[in-house]
């Protein structure tokens, strides 16, 4: 497919390098997978903090995005494809909700809750990293349809 630029985008849109969130999703996948296998509340607490930064300050402000900018991006070649920051920010917010539920499961000694919540977050992060899955595309409208009259 042809490379599409952002000529039609309003200046207000906050554009970020589209490869950043994908790299962050790969790190998130590793962290969540390790947390799932080792049942580590500490790792979930760390990932929760990262999700919270991504959800509130933006996906380009997380430590993973910092690693991307500092060490990965300078080594990448090819054209920079940008994207709106809102879709990955939405995905970070959903991740934050699952991380909170997982941590609650751990603190309340409900291992099943921990496992299920981490599994869902891992599922989404893995799909994002491996298949460029767009979570906001698939669930936001369904959510609106369910909630709004």
């Amino acid at each position: 497919m042809a490379v599409l630029n952002q000529s039609s985008v309003t200046p207000k849109t906050n554009l970020i390098d589209a490869r950043g969130p994908r790299f962050s999703a790969a790190i998130t996948t590793l962290v969540l997978a390790t947390a799932l296998v080792t049942e580590s509340a500490t790792l979930i607490a760390i990932q929760l903090a990262v999700f919270a930064i991504g959800a509130f300050a933006g996906p380009a402000k997380t430590p993973y995005a910092f690693v991307f900018k500092k060490f990965v991006k300078p080594r990448l070649k090819g054209e920079v494809v940008t994207e709106d920051a809102r879709p990955p920010q939405f995905a970070q917010s959903v991740g934050l909700i699952f991380a909170v539920v997982a941590l609650a499961g751990s603190l309340l000694s409900i291992p099943a809750l921990f496992t299920v919540a981490v599994s869902f977050a891992l599922f989404a992060a893995f799909l994002n990293a491996a298949f460029n899955f767009c979570l906001g595309c698939e669930i936001y409208l369904l959510g609106l349809r369910a909630v709004k009259k």
């Binding site: 039609s8 809102r86 879709p87 990955p88 920010q89 767009c134 595309c137 936001y140």
Partner: peptide, 16 residues
């Protein structure tokens, strides 16, 4: 299209 959708922008540019 919706707000939290990266491929919406690319689709719009392509079809337009």
């Amino acid at each position: 299209s919706s707000a939290f959708c990266s491929p919406c922008r690319a689709t719009k540019a392509l079809l337009e």
